[in-house]
């Protein structure tokens, strides 16, 4: 297995308050699951807003790798390659 790829997590506006205002986070992860586990350690507040107590991605959120929903790939086991952009997309209510 090669070096762990470095990927970018894109954090939309409504979730930035949980990660010190960062719009992007750069982390190393082989899979989406690894990326979420990294968040659990490094950005606990953000993680709690993305995953529930059982570790599942909350149902009002979608996680995309580049422009593909992980639901249509391999879920949290989707493999990541260097340069991938993981986007967390919450439903938003304001109007």
């Amino acid at each position: 297995m090669g070096p762990t790829p470095t990927i970018t997590i894109h954090v939309p506006g409504p979730l930035r308050t949980y990660c010190g205002g960062a719009a992007q986070l750069s982390i190393s992860a082989q899979t989406v699951r690894d990326a979420l586990e990294d968040l659990q350690r490094s950005q606990a507040a953000l993680y709690r807003n993305v995953c529930d107590e059982t570790g599942k991605v909350r149902r009002h959120l979608n996680v995309f790798v580049n422009s593909d929903n992980v639901r249509d790939l391999n879920g949290v086991d989707t493999l990541l390659t260097a340069g991938d952009v993981v986007t967390i997309l919450p439903a938003v209510s304001g109007g």
């Binding site: 409504p14 308050t17 909350r58 149902r59 009002h60 979608n62 919450p90 439903a91 938003v92 209510s93 304001g94 109007g95």
Partner: peptide, 19 residues
């Protein structure tokens, strides 16, 4: 299909987060 259920709990709103 995209969001099977509405969010639970407080979400940022225009009142709390501004707009």
């Amino acid at each position: 299909c995209v969001y099977p259920d509405p969010p639970e709990g407080a979400q940022p709103t225009c009142e709390t987060a501004g707009v």
